[in-house]
Design a protein around this nucleic acid. Structure first.
Length: 863
RNA sequence: GCGAGAGUGGCGGAACUGGUAGACGCACUGGACUUAGGAUCCAGCUCUGGCGACAGAGUGGGAGUUCAAGUCUCCCCUCUCGCACCA
């Protein structure tokens, strides 16, 4: 064994071996228990970043560990290859998105291989290939048949810079999530998936996902946003029409003194027509449509509205109440109309005060006397009913039930539920995506592409247009076609492409049979592998990707293709990789090599001004606090890089990057290596000790027990909670015990125990630092890969301690401690504690009121 | 505002169902080996007082339950994340 640890030499060696030996290739094997471990596949942006390294290092440990535990482990990797950045890059470099994408895939695949991850590369997929999206288009047709996919004209978030529609989820604080430009509203014909059909089911199953983090479940529940309330219909004065509203406070309906419609509500223009208010309303609606909806915080977003010139009737009181349109009413929620009860809703209260509208108290508080003239804010608490006709005096909770009944009986409305979630808009006015397989015909309308004509291939011979506008409508070969129904040659193809979240909603099923050409996937393979046992990825996908995948899985199940509803049994959301930022007052954020260090002071290389150390934040290019994995790989190698990612923090928590921490990891591996090299000659031809510890004594006995204790600890840390940081700590402790032993050449037991310890430590380390472990394993004389070795098991009889350490407290304070043999009884321990010299000092002359003995742990003397 | 989570040495982080607070690592300090060391090895390392044995304080702050609280209960403060006019 080489006395020096040289990752540059051993890492390529084992990577080549793994590749040629096909050890990571798996197939369905009913005799073995399967384990499907999946990490979120990356977007091929050009380079692997530290977030990927962390994500995939965590996954690789689990995959390798489960493999050693005898599972048939599916551990695939692929590329989420459609999407806008490819187009933007192609426009910038005057190339093609496909070219850019495939180059990036090649580069990133090489990086992943360089990190030594145990993927079955035969299953690699790229979602931009026709053999992948072919089946997505096929499912689209099935969804269209069932009206699960449909088209409607709707307001969409439009990003002028990207020339595309964004899903609500892709708008962050009013800005485009990709480019940061302001988003505005535009009306377009769009394709949608009817996810709202499954809103209840998706919500209900949130409570049937015990392997998911509570946080993600909560976020999904909030996103679905089910609320219980009532619909109430308000007749419009002088017309037959009614305005339905959704409310969760139908107990307050008697206090509804005005009506508010969303500015986009069709009745706004319709009703104001011909009234003196018409012009003002029109101007208001136009102004609001340009207003940036979400950029500002709620507090400084002023509530404003206008009277639309018409009234409706409060169905309970018969009162005539004015109809307003206001910027705080949302067309997308409920019915787009709100019954305003200023006495019991803060928003309505503010609005009423501003426009001088009536305030009527209908729920009276038990504690304070509410007066509509003097109240300073809305009363939203519980109470008893007043000013509410036959419901007066009732508790408002009861009134809620009774009023709902009343509404139902009189055909004025009734109980209902409302969801926040809206249908999934999948249309993108972009080129680099999977074409939506329909044709528009003058006479037949929307005609689905016949199944046998699939896939509708995205033409790759195109010139990208400046600004990101899709070239598809200008591409006659693609665009112009004949109608499959009537043969009309004036038909045109749909040029919208699908949201890339559609591709990522089923890629995990495709991995089960990635080359299958008879459908989306081979049913037998999916039945064997799915669902995913453990999914690992970033929290940023807590809602969108995960919710869409859950939905899509339900669609596939209803299509008869799957037997289950939930694709991911367990989910781990790993924390972000963070690092402190550094900046110069003149030159902004700085990279480490833009800084000079002079006797401890950091100075900007450009202007020599002192550098400010900023807070620890998520690594990002714009803040220049990134670490390039390639540099780490070159300097330390893959094993050290992986090691640090796992050791620095538990996976669910943010990881703070520390160059010194990486050094520490590297040092530890070097120490283990040197120890192994130093003892190798002595232990090489020895058989590892594996008997009862009673035949051992001294340091050998201690080491033997420590080794078994470590196996137990490491196994539990990985198995139960993926806490690799504490698992590694335990391995370090074992190492410290090992290195404290001075090996005697002639002590055969000692050599056998050392052999056992070295073997065990190597096995325990192998999922974390696989190249390192393979090399040591080979040096130990093993002929086959450590991948084929079994995970070590511990013996109960080797876990027991030889002596117990008993601590003595006086009044709960630690005062002394002593060792005693394991089978000492409580009374003996108690007597020994009382007799303790130090304890005597504390208890002398005092009355002992109580002595508590905690078995094998402590004695507390109460005086 | 609502919801979730977290506050432990100089730092990252340990501590099972209440039972030795600070495992393990980093940084730092001293020493050894050395032409040299940013390599390696040994020792120390929560704070305060003391040469010392030792004593006192200590897990964001304040109360409480208990023989015993980082851990349980209540109140408060701070931070992070998510949602944010959802009727």
């Amino acid at each position: 064994m080489d006395p020096r640890y040289d990752p540059k030499k051993i890492e390529p060696k084992w990577q080549a071996y793994w590749e040629s030996s096909n050890l990571f290739k798996v197939k369905e094997d009913p005799a073995k228990e399967k384990y499907y471990l999946l990490e979120m596949f990356p977007y091929p942006s050009g380079n692997i970043h530290m977030g990927h390294v962390r994500n995939y290092s965590i996954g690789d440990v689990v995959a390798r560990y489960k493999r050693m535990r005898g599972f048939n482990v599916l551990h695939p990797m692929g590329w989420d290859a459609f999407g806008m950045p490819a187009e933007n890059a192609a426009i910038a470099n005057k190339s093609h998105p496909a070219e850019w994408t495939y180059q990036n895939i090649d580069a990133m695949r090489a990086q992943l291989k360089r990190l030594g991850f145990s993927y079955d590369w035969d299953r690699e997929i790229a979602t931009c290939k026709p053999d992948y999206y072919h089946w997505e288009q096929w499912l689209f047709l099935k969804m269209y048949e069932k009206a699960m996919a449909y088209r409607k004209e709707s307001f969409v978030n439009w990003c002028e810079a990207c020339q595309t529609v964004l899903a609500n989820e892709q708008v962050e604080a009013g800005l485009c999530w990709r480019c940061g430009q302001q988003v505005r509203q535009k009306k377009l014909w769009q394709w949608f998936f009817r996810i709202t059909d499954y809103a209840d089911d998706l919500l209900m199953y949130c409570d049937k996902l015990p392997g998911w983090p509570e946080k993600v479940i909560t976020m999904q529940k909030n996103w679905i946003g089910k609320s219980y309330g009532a619909e109430i219909r308000f007749p419009i004065e002088g017309q037959d029409e009614m305005i339905p509203v959704f409310t969760t406070r139908h107990d307050t309906v008697f206090g509804a003194t005005f009506m508010v419609l969303a500015p986009e509500h069709p009745l706004v223009m319709q009703l104001s027509q011909g009234t003196p208010q018409q012009k003002e309303v029109q101007a208001f609606v136009e102004r609001i449509s340009l207003q940036d909806r979400t950029a500002k915080s709620v507090e400084d977003y002023e509530k404003e509205g206008v009277f639309i010139g018409r009234y409706c009737i409060n169905p309970m009181t018969g009162n005539r109440i004015p109809i307003y349109t206001a910027n705080f009413a949302l067309m997308e929620y409920g019915t787009g109309a709100v019954m305003a009860v200023p006495a019991h809703d803060q928003r309505d209260f503010d609005f009423a005060k501003k426009y001088g509208l009536d305030i009527i108290v209908v729920v009276s508080s038990a504690e304070e006397n509410l007066d509509s003239n003097t109240m300073a804010e809305a009363y939203i608490g519980e109470g008893f009913m007043v000013n509410s006709g036959q419901f007066d005096g009732l508790n408002n909770k009861e009134a809620m039930e009774k009023i709902a009944d009343h509404l139902e009986k009189n055909n004025l409305g009734g109980k209902t539920v409302s969801f926040r979630i809206r249908d999934w808009g999948i249309s993108r006015q972009r080129y680099w995506g999977a074409p939506i397989p329909v044709i528009h015909c003058e006479s037949c309308g929307v005609v689905p592409v016949p199944e046998e004509d699939l896939p509708v291939i995205l033409p790759e011979e195109v010139d990208m247009l400046e600004g990101g506008k899709s070239p598809l409508p200008e591409l006659d070969d693609f665009f112009r076609t004949t109608c499959p129904k009537c043969g009309n040659s004036d038909a045109v193809r749909e040029t919208d492409t699908m949201d890339t979240f559609v591709e990522s909603s089923w890629y995990f099923e495709r991995y089960c049979s990635p080359k299958y050409d008879g459908g989306m996937f081979d049913k037998a393979a999916v039945d064997y592998w799915m669902p995913v046992d453990q999914y690992i990825g970033g929290v940023e996908h807590a809602i969108l990707h995960l919710l869409y995948s859950r939905y899509y899985t339900r669609v596939l199940k209803d299509q008869g293709l799957l037997k289950f509803k939930e694709p991911f049994t367990r989910l781990l959301t790993q924390g972000m990789v963070c690092k402190e930022t550094m900046s110069c007052p003149d030159h902004g954020f700085l990279l480490p090599d833009e800084i000079n260090t002079e006797n401890g002071n950091r100075l900007c290389r450009k202007c020599n001004k002192p550098v400010t150390l900023g807070r620890v934040e998520k690594m990002s290019k714009s803040k220049k606090n990134v670490v390039d994995p390639n540099i780490l790989l070159a300097k330390y190698g893959a094993d050290t890089t992986r090691f640090f990612c796992l050791f620095a923090a538990p996976p669910e928590r943010d990881l703070e990057w520390s160059e010194q921490g990486v050094d520490g990891g590297s040092r530890f591996l070097n120490r283990v290596w040197r120890l192994a090299a130093a003892v190798m000659n002595t232990i090489k031809d020895v058989t590892a000790f594996d008997g009862n510890p009673d035949s051992l004594d001294g340091p050998a006995r201690e080491l033997y027990k420590k080794t078994h204790q470590t196996i137990k600890k490491v196994t539990a840390d990985i198995e139960e909670r993926f806490h690799f940081n504490t698992a590694i700590s335990a391995m370090m402790e074992l190492f410290n015990t090992m290195s404290a032993i001075e090996l005697q050449r002639d002590d055969r037991n000692q050599a056998a125990v050392m052999r056992f310890a070295v073997e065990t430590l190597t096995l325990l380390l192998s999922p974390v630092v696989p190249h390192f472990a393979e090399e040591v394993w080979e040096a130990l004389g093993n002929k086959s890969s450590i991948l084929l070795a079994a995970w070590p098991s511990y013996r109960e009889d080797a876990l027991e301690k030889d002596e117990l350490l008993i601590v003595i407290q006086v009044n709960g304070k630690l005062r002394s401690r002593f060792n005693i043999e394991v089978n000492a009884d409580d009374e003996t321990i108690k007597q020994k504690a009382l007799a303790d010299e130090k304890i005597q000092k504390f208890i002398a002359g005092k009355e002992i009121r109580k002595v508590i003995v905690v078995k094998h742990k402590l004695v507390n003397i109460v005086i």
